[in-house]
């Protein structure tokens, strides 16, 4: 019973903090992108425009809620909340510190990957239910992309699992805390696996350069083309939460989680690493152009999958003979 209360209370805290951080990460991204483009970004709404995301949400709350006449209304309405729930659900198993965790599951890595993989379902549902050709194309692309990139994502996540000998994320972090961060040693396994994990994660979260399901210049707004007001906001939020949580997972699996190296470990390290990774993803986003869908597939199946298989095999050999 106490475990339930613990999970509930920490879960509530994590979700609240996550939503707040997501809202302000929107502001942060807009400012960062603006500075990268020699603009100013939001300045007039609150000090340095920091209240901009709040104004956006307040505005979206007041917008008319349109369900297209020929859309499948049930699925159309169901998709956005499911997307958010899936994205937040992943956060349940991510330990931010030895204590700040909703549920440090024994199969934490499996859970995270499984729930993360489900996020494509609402996206495809939205594309299908909108009864819009552009949205349908976006949904098709999303499915193809997510199913493909699931493979390197899982294989890359297997590397720390093999090295640490546990699927519990807390144990993986503890192992790194006791030995080395996986990107530091064995770096020839850790760094490639980390890079593959981040790339696959970008593809899962539909971020540039893999944002072809949304692809404004081709598909107008992709799967979200027909969504208005809060439903659109939920999709938008799901994308950011997904990226944020995935950054947290990557920090835990490869960057030592709450371990601070020579300094005292603590929650702040995990938060810092997550935000640092998150900002790095923004940087990629506002620098690169977009792949075409067949190039995306080729990158996945021709390069990422074979190399991640090789990494897993090497990790096994390493554990048996060295570690």
């Amino acid at each position: 019973m106490s475990g339930f209360v613990h999970g509930l209370s920490y879960g509530a805290v994590i979700v609240t903090v996550l939503m707040t951080v997501t809202a302000f990460s929107l502001w942060f991204e807009r400012k960062l992108a603006a500075r990268m483009q020699s603009r100013l970004g939001p300045t007039l709404v609150g000090p340095a425009g920091i209240l901009q995301p709040i104004a956006d949400v307040l505005k979206l709350l007041q917008k008319e809620d349109i369900v297209p006449l020929k859309a499948d209304a049930v699925l159309f309405n169901l998709a956005p909340p499911v997307a958010v729930v899936c994205a937040i659900g992943v956060a349940a198993a991510v330990p931010f510190s030895p204590t700040v965790v909703a549920a440090d599951l024994d199969v934490g890595v499996l859970y995270v990957l499984a729930i993360g993989a489900v996020t494509v379902l609402p996206v495809f549902t939205a594309g299908w239910a909108s009864n819009n050709k552009l949205a349908l194309l976006g949904g098709m692309r999303a499915v193809a992309q997510s199913v493909s990139y699931e493979v390197p994502l899982v294989l890359a996540a297997l590397v720390p699992v093999i090295l640490a000998g546990s699927m519990r994320i807390g144990a993986i972090v503890q192992f790194q805390s006791d030995h080395h961060w996986f990107v530091a040693w064995p770096f020839f396994l850790g760094i490639p696996a980390f890079v593959i994990f981040v790339l696959a994660m970008l593809a899962e979260a539909n971020r540039i350069p893999f944002d072809i399901p949304e692809a404004e210049s081709e598909l107008v707004a992709g799967v979200t083309t027909e969504y208005t007001g809060m439903k659109f906001a939920l999709f938008y939020m799901a994308e950011y939460v997904h990226t944020l949580v995935a950054s947290a997972v990557a920090s835990a699996l490869f960057l030592g989680g709450w371990d601070g190296g020579p300094f005292r470990p603590g929650l702040h390290w995990m938060v810092l690493k997550t935000l640092f990774l998150f900002a790095g993803l923004y940087w990629i986003r506002w620098t690169l152009l977009r792949f075409r869908s067949d190039q995306l597939m080729r990158l996945c199946w021709r390069y990422l999958v074979p190399s991640s298989i090789a990494l897993v095999a090497t990790a096994g050999v390493w554990v048996v003979f060295v570690g």
Binding site: A33, Q37, I208, P209, D211, S217, W286, L289, R290
Partner: peptide
């Protein structure tokens, strides 16, 4: 053209804004 290739919410818009500058 960069906007077409990179989308309004990505690297394309960075090139776009540099060019307009």
């Amino acid at each position: 053209f960069a906007l077409d290739l990179g989308g309004a919410l990505g690297g394309g818009s960075t090139v776009f804004i540099y060019c307009f500058r």
